[in-house]
């Protein structure tokens, strides 16, 4: 076995793979020493670890459970229609007309929750000179518009499907 083969078998990838990763850890490690020097490392580390798990262990279980619930509640159709391969003339599946506005509204809430739920009120009022109160109303309005648009689209699709089926 030549050197390349032995290396590949022991390590599992070409040499440049290890070199590239070593460089990555070098730069990241250097930046990490700066975080330690500034003295903010305990908080930084906690938030960094939190960031690693935020999506996969917090957000994902929440939104997939919500999605599962939504699918179960909308899928009251017989089993044979499960494959979404609906013949023309059938009502379109309602799930995505529920999914999209819910997800978009949830996304806006996720990103802007400090404004919408007034968590940022003290700093915000002091800095900007205005209150965060309008944001809750705005978010509710945007959410209503999203659901209304989705419902309208669903009704139109149902009507179109009904016409095609006749």
């Amino acid at each position: 076995m030549n050197g390349h083969g032995r290396w590949a078998r022991a390590y599992g990838a070409p040499t440049w793979h290890l070199l590239a990763l070593a460089l990555c850890f070098l730069v990241a490690g250097y930046a990490a020493t700066k975080v330690v020097e500034v003295g903010i490392w305990p908080g930084f580390l906690v938030w960094f670890v939190g960031a690693v798990i935020l999506h996969d262990l917090v957000l994902f279980p929440l939104y997939s459970a919500a999605d599962f619930a939504a699918r179960s509640s909308t899928a009251r159709t017989p089993r044979r229609r499960r494959t979404a391969a609906r013949p023309p003339g059938r009502r379109p599946a309602p799930i995505n007309y529920l999914r999209l506005p819910t997800a978009f509204s949830g996304l806006l809430l996720l990103v802007w929750s400090p404004l919408i739920l007034h968590g940022a009120e003290p700093n915000y009022r002091a800095a900007v000179g205005l209150s965060t109160i309008p944001y809750l109303t705005r978010w509710i309005l945007v959410t209503l518009v999203l659901f209304a648009a989705s419902a309208l689209l669903y009704v139109l699709r149902c009507l179109a499907a009904g016409r095609a089926g006749r």
Partner: peptide, 16 residues
């Protein structure tokens, strides 16, 4: 959003 709940100064944390 001026929601300074993180236990560090934004500048060095966001830069490093």
């Amino acid at each position: 959003q001026l929601f300074y709940v993180f236990p560090f100064s934004f500048y060095p944390a966001h830069f490093y």
